[in-house]
């Protein structure tokens, strides 16, 4: 009896404890982890409910694109996945969100732990005002990794994964602000990858970048997707079509009702043969 209770507790903590699951991509590849399940999710800022009734699955090791007109709550929904909404104040999240079966909004979950598993890349590149090396090392250091060789290896891996290693390997001590906008954004991706997350959230990661940098980011996403679950918000339909496996279309039909999910499904199917009229008109650019 006692034993089973203990085991149950360990199992509950397991996703955060590292037992039975490696954070290393190569080893973890055969395990299925990093999948979200959303049930009746709603979000309210103060008294205003901006999202309601969202049900969807985010499959592991695939790219899910969130699309929809400006202001429909894509960023808001994205911030639910790593509980960044907690930091905004006066935000309430309803419904259930589970990560590999674990309710991430339950009391015993420390959002800080959650965020080590679920990384985020922001719309504008936001490197810290410090060296390239220190930027990428920030997450691992937060996790208590201090050994130089260990850090070096993690940083090289992360920068390689973000396709930035070749460009910066000889300038790791350079200040991050000396990089170009596109390089800065890839640095931010590397920084997020260095914590070995299972999920990477990206909020319009290429919208502030030129076409070539955008291409590089898209290539990076393609490289990463068989190792890490990616949820990306984008306004660019071609981009969604190119890089995502699954697409979710959100819409807020009027300002006095919350946004909802119109359609979720396989990207190819949605872009060729959408089920919903509204999806079709949005994709073909008739509104939004």
């Amino acid at each position: 009896m006692v034993m089973s209770a203990v085991l149950e507790e360990v199992a509950m903590e397991a996703p955060f404890s590292g037992t039975g699951r490696s954070r290393t991509y190569a080893e973890g590849a055969e395990e299925i982890s990093g999948s979200f399940s959303l049930t009746d999710v709603s979000v309210a800022y103060g008294n205003e409910t901006v999202i309601a009734g969202v049900d969807m699955l985010v499959p592991s090791r695939a790219v899910t694109a969130l699309i929809g007109p400006s202001g429909c709550g894509k960023s808001t929904l994205l911030r639910c996945f790593n509980r960044m909404n907690d930091e905004i104040g006066n935000v309430r999240v309803g419904g259930t969100i589970t990560l590999d079966g674990l309710d991430i909004y339950q009391k015993s979950i420390d959002p800080v732990d959650l965020r080590m598993r679920v990384g985020q890349v922001f719309q504008r590149p936001n490197p810290f005002p410090m060296s390239i090396y220190d930027n990428v090392a920030f997450g691992p250091r937060t996790q208590g990794i201090r050994k130089r060789e260990e850090l070096d290896a993690i940083i090289e891996d992360a920068l390689r994964d973000a396709a930035l290693w070749e460009e910066v390997q000889n300038h790791l001590k350079k200040h991050a602000f000396e990089l170009s906008g596109g390089q800065q954004q890839r640095l931010c991706i590397a920084r997020a990858l260095a914590t070995r997350p299972e999920v990477l959230l990206m909020d319009e990661p290429a919208s502030a970048l030129d076409p070539i940098s955008t291409q590089q980011i898209e290539d990076t996403i393609a490289e990463l997707k068989d190792r890490v679950t990616i949820v990306i918000v984008t306004h660019n339909m071609q981009q969604a079509a190119r890089i995502s496996d699954q697409t979710a279309f959100m819409l807020r039909e009027s300002m006095d009702q919350p946004a909802h999910l119109v359609e979720v499904g396989d990207t190819k199917r949605m872009f060729t043969n959408p089920n919903d009229k509204r999806t079709e008109s949005y994709i073909t650019g008739r509104f939004g």
Partner: peptide, 20 residues
């Protein structure tokens, strides 16, 4: 590079408590 496998659940839990 292995980041966590060397640690036990208890150790990481301990760190969480200490951090809090």
């Amino acid at each position: 590079m292995k980041v966590t496998p060397t640690e036990t659940a208890g150790q990481r839990l301990g760190r969480t408590t200490r951090r809090r």
